[in-house]
Design a protein around this nucleic acid. Structure first.
Length: 688
RNA sequence: GGCGAUGUAGCUCAACUGGUUAGAGCAUUCGGUUCAUACCCGAAAGGUUACUGGUUCGAUUCCAGUCAUCGCUACCA
């Protein structure tokens, strides 16, 4: 039976454009996975859309003097445009302001309410009369009761970092208009997460296949104890409560957002003219639901969202897996438009190709820990991997066919020679390995193995030297080139999930009539392109010049400076480590036995370029020291010198030689200088 | 503050439940080759696995502590 999957990527918040960090965490990995699974014949629906409610949107809209609706319309389009540029293909890119979504969200609420998993309760909250709205904690400003800082936020003091209860804040003012808010009683509804923790824990305990970081993190959260959580707020923008006398109250955005996964699937079903089709994915238990997210979303998708699903009567499929990625930063710091620490995506695509960036991100994806985008890395991935290894292997082979085989892929002999058979075996092994990487969300390793295949091709090509056999052994030459095109077919195919556009283009260059994504994965090993006439052969990946990358780096730094952001420390500023560290007392210092030693003999250690073996005299005693100073001193120039050594250092073995102490030297970058006494003094003298 | 993660070659990362000499790629140096996008192929060099202690015949791996970096801490999506 066909594998059936419903894959989602976290719904981006329609409050601004998304950046590389988002792409690397939740979207590109999902797109690669979906493309791979489709090649394997899986029946998949890939869902995403914009999350369009919540306070930040209302505030941003106000700032721009447009309605929230106009505001999210704008960003829905902007974000969709970005996904198109990245060639991330959702079956449906919906939105949470769709009427279907309102209906379904209210249904979710009512079901939970009936099961007593949502309960109302009264709370005190600041209300700003001039803004005519209740204020979320973080929008109340005031004086911190702990440190007296006068610009503390209601949830946290920005100066001392303490956690605050908004009610203990002194001299509160409205964070939006600065007028004095009043305390009002208001009724809110709370999700009773604590009542579901046993059920959630039981459910999670079965998730043996989840990523370890996800499962341990979530289960420890449950162990710490779940608390009820407010799901409503006083606002006009959002899904209204489906109860009487609750005007001005909407469901909190986090409550309605994940429900979007289902409501958008419904929108999709309607769009394709089969309104019940969504049930195959959400109600049929054979379908696996997978949520690709960034790590910041783990609690929502592994606790809150399953809890919402458990409280329903429909019997929706629970998440089968939640592949969460870590963060993708820009050279060590989170992307931040307000700090000028960002890359303008529109601008980016005027100069670079989609597949270059897809590859660069995938090859460096934050699968197990945070990772970085750097311009240098991007250039390196593009030039030395895509262009030099992958692109060049393709090009040298195809150019050869054009020149010497009349643009037609030569036939391979019925029985291949030994080197080709060995290379084929290796290539087939790589295909299997790449397949399992894609299955395990290891795009990064898959990229590496794709390049391994490219290297395999180049190695084979070099060892066969078809440019020589062309004259000496034309049959062998034809076999070589024929087999290289077989390798290129593999290469195009296995790289398709990551670089779909280039792979498809390459596939067509080889003269294939069938589109690459119509070939099932289990047939790929039998592909034998021969007799095809090449079509539209062209360079796949252009190189990126150093000057251009430097210009990008300069632009980034300039933007950062303009925004008043902190410029990253220039590595050229200082090579010496700052003179600081833990403070020691005099007793600690006295533990060191520092002595003057006279160097009697010095010789280089044969197998080391850094170490010198010294014989020194310390007050009549002779010792052997190993010192890492060979790059800075010739053995001869050391003989007779007085130096300072640590005499009571525990002896250590370096390169098989015992070192009974340590010679002191000062170091700054590449400069190194030995310490010695200012005047002549006998060896063995104590240093204090 | 609490919880968690991470720290391995100049850079980016590997190393299943502890087990020969800690591995790749990029960058570097040297050599080869000329079909190709000045590419490719080969070789070399490069490490006190953050630090300190413990368990063990044996620790990058397990434990404790220290330092550093980062994340989450749920009315910031």
């Amino acid at each position: 039976m066909k594998e059936r999957l419903l894959v989602t990527s976290a719904l981006p918040y329609a409050n601004g454009p998304i950046h590389f960090g988002h792409i690397a965490g939740a979207y590109l990995p999902a797109d690669i996975f979906v493309r791979f699974k489709r090649l394997n014949g899986a029946d998949i629906v890939f869902i995403c859309g914009t999350d369009e409610h919540g306070v930040p949107i209302t505030l941003s809209a106000e700032k721009d003097q447009i309605s929230p609706k106009e505001y999210v319309d704008k960003y829905h389009k902007v974000i969709k445009g970005i996904f198109d540029k990245f060639n991330i293909r959702f079956d449906s890119f919906g939105r949470t302001t769709h009427p279907d979504h309102y209906d379904l969200t209210q249904e979710f609420f009512m079901n939970l309410l009936k099961k007593n998993l949502i309960k109302p309760s009264m709370a005190k909250q600041y209300f700003c009369a001039s803004c005519n709205k209740f204020l979320a904690d973080r929008y109340v400003k005031g004086t911190c009761p702990k440190c007296g800082h006068n610009k503390a936020r209601g949830d946290e003091c920005t100066s001392c970092g303490s956690w605050l209860d908004v009610l203990e804040l002194k001299e509160p003012s409205c964070g939006i208009c600065s007028s004095v808010p009043e305390l009002r009683e208001t009724k809110h509804w709370y999700l009773q997460l604590q009542d579901m923790s046993a059920q959630l824990d039981q459910w999670l305990s079965e998730k043996k296949h989840w990523k370890e970081n996800v499962i341990t993190w979530v289960r420890s959260m449950i162990k710490e104890g779940l608390k009820e959580r407010a799901i409503t707020r006083d606002l006009s923008w959002g899904v209204p409560l489906p109860l009487d006398n609750t005007e001005g109250k909407v469901l909190y955005v986090w409550f309605d957002a994940p429900i979007g996964y289902i409501s958008i699937t419904k929108q999709w079903a309607r769009d394709i003219g089969k309104p019940d089709e969504w049930k195959k994915y959400w109600l049929d238990p054979s379908c696996r639901v997978m949520h690709f997210i960034g790590k910041d979303n783990i609690p929502f998708h592994c606790i809150v969202w399953p809890a919402l699903l458990m409280g329903q009567v429909e019997g929706y499929n629970m998440p089968y897996d939640v592949p969460a990625n870590e963060f993708f930063n820009l050279d060590g710091r989170q992307f931040s438009k307000s700090d000028g620490w960002y890359i303008d995506i529109e601008d980016f695509f005027t100069r670079y190709k989609t597949d270059s960036i897809r590859y660069a991100i995938a090859a460096n994806a934050p699968e197990t820990r945070d990772s970085d985008f750097t311009w240098k890395d991007f250039q390196g991935r593009n030039n030395s991997e895509l262009a030099n290894i992958y692109g060049n292997f393709v090009h040298r082979t195809l150019a050869f066919i054009i020149k010497y085989f009349d643009e037609t892929i030569p036939q391979q002999p019925a029985k291949l020679s030994e080197p080709a058979l060995k290379a084929r075996e290796e290539a087939h092994r790589l295909i299997d390995e790449i397949s399992s990487c894609y299955n395990n969300y290891e795009a990064r390793k898959a990229c590496f193995l794709i390049m391994e295949m490219g290297r395999l091709g180049n190695r084979y090509y070099d060892s066969e030297a078809p440019w020589a056999t062309r004259k000496s052994n034309p049959d062998r030459c034809a076999e070589t080139i024929g087999f290289c095109t077989e390798l290129i077919s593999y290469l195009a195919y296995v790289s398709y999930p990551v670089i779909p556009e280039s792979a498809a283009k390459l596939w067509r260059m080889l003269g294939n009539m069938t589109e690459i994504d119509m070939i099932p994965w289990d047939r790929i090993k039998t592909i034998r392109p021969a007799g095809f006439k090449l079509k539209n052969v062209a360079i796949l990946f252009e190189k990126i010049e150093d000057e251009q990358i430097q210009a990008e780096i300069d632009t980034l730094l300039k933007n950062c400076e303009k925004a008043g952001g902190v410029k990253p420390a220039s590595p050229a500023a200082s090579t010496a480590a700052p003179a600081s560290g833990p403070v020691v007392n005099i007793d600690d210092f006295r533990k060191l036995d520092l002595r003057i030693a006279k160097i009697l003999e010095a010789e280089a250690l044969p197998k080391s370029d850094k170490l010198l073996k010294l014989r020194v005299s310390v007050g009549g005693e002779t010792r052997q020291l190993i010192a890492g100073i060979a790059k800075h001193y010739q053995p001869q120039q050391l003989i007779g010198k007085n130096v300072v050594i640590v005499a009571n250092l525990k002896p250590a073995k370096l390169m098989g030689e015992v070192s009974q102490g340590m010679v002191l030297a000062a170091k700054n970058g590449d400069v190194l200088a030995l310490l010695g006494p200012d005047a002549d003094i006998s060896d063995g003298s104590q240093v204090s």
